[in-house]
Design a protein around this nucleic acid. Structure first.
Ligand SMILES: [Mn+2]
Ligand SMILES: [Mn+2]
Ligand SMILES: [Mn+2]
Ligand SMILES: [Mn+2]
Lengths: 143, 143
DNA sequence: CGCAAAATATAGCATAGGCTATTTCTTCGC
DNA sequence: GCGAAGAAATAGCCTATGCTATATTTTGCG
């Protein structure tokens, strides 16, 4: 039977899932980037975080407050930001997924710069199941 | 030169792009779905829109107000919702992209139901450039 | 018809995520 | 060591997107 129309409830579930993903996407991006900053510069300062996210400094401060609230980061006033074990684990996972998504896009013919641009949004919606499929596809690639 | 680290400004632009995409994603989903409802049922009622989006009815009403504000839909109180030419054109585009994304996912080995689930979020971040690459990849497929 | 039920709109509330302007703290150079 | 500059925090504002509770309008039926 070729592509049934999904039931309204099915479709509602899909949209709900997309909304949930969206709610954590920002946290994922911050955590990944804070990890990068610590790796590159030894510390993650609010000003650098804001610059890389392309937001105003108070916006970054507010996001960091949320990271702390959710147990992903720590910080003390006027000091840098650090990842908790949980935050570091998320950063690791998110970074690996980001790489895989970019590679998959390139593998199907997307130019590298476009792949990077689109991956920044796409990555958050790639489920574990899909990620494994991407990995298998890349592993099976000629070249 | 293998994958330079992007400059902070480059990365900021990528995040900014992802934020812009996100701002129109909801409109795209509503417009596509309103188009579906009109095609299937002859009209799009607020209650059906809310049910398919998986949100409360006032949430749908509010989203419809935004569609109207942005020139994508029309409606009169207590009557159904209609798409403007602009809204119908967006629905068409979004529906085609949705299909292509699902097909691409399936083509690289993602199970159909997972593909549908992930595509609902992914689609919005697929640029025209990437979409064309997907189409080319699918066209070149054996089978 | 005429009224109850269903559909829709409205009111009012919350959170996330943006912003600018201002205050407060830290750092650094003299 | 002190004062200016720089960094971070805070205050206060806005919009988008959710929600529940309630009012209003339309519809269908006896
Ligand atoms: Mn991202
Ligand atoms: Mn990323
Ligand atoms: Mn969607
Ligand atoms: Mn869609």
């Amino acid at each position: 039977m070729p592509h049934d129309t999904p039931t309204p409830a099915d479709q509602a579930d899909r949209f709900a899932r997309a909304r949930e993903v969206q709610a954590v996407a920002l946290l994922e991006d911050y955590v990944e980037m804070i990890g990068d900053l610590i790796a590159e510069m030894g510390e993650a300062r609010v000003a650098d975080i804001a610059a890389r996210m392309g937001v105003a400094q108070p916006t970054a401060t507010k996001a960091i407050a949320r990271l702390k609230r959710e147990g992903l980061a720590t910080s003390r006033p006027y000091r840098g930001v650090f990842l908790t074990d949980q935050g570091a684990a998320m950063a690791e996972r998110v970074r690996a997924r980001h790489r895989t998504v970019v590679e998959l896009l390139i593998a199907v013919g997307v130019p590298a710069d476009t792949a990077e641009l689109d991956a920044e949004g796409i990555e958050h919606h790639v489920s574990d199941h899909t990620l494994r499929a991407f990995e298998a596809f890349l592993a099976a690639m000629p070249r």
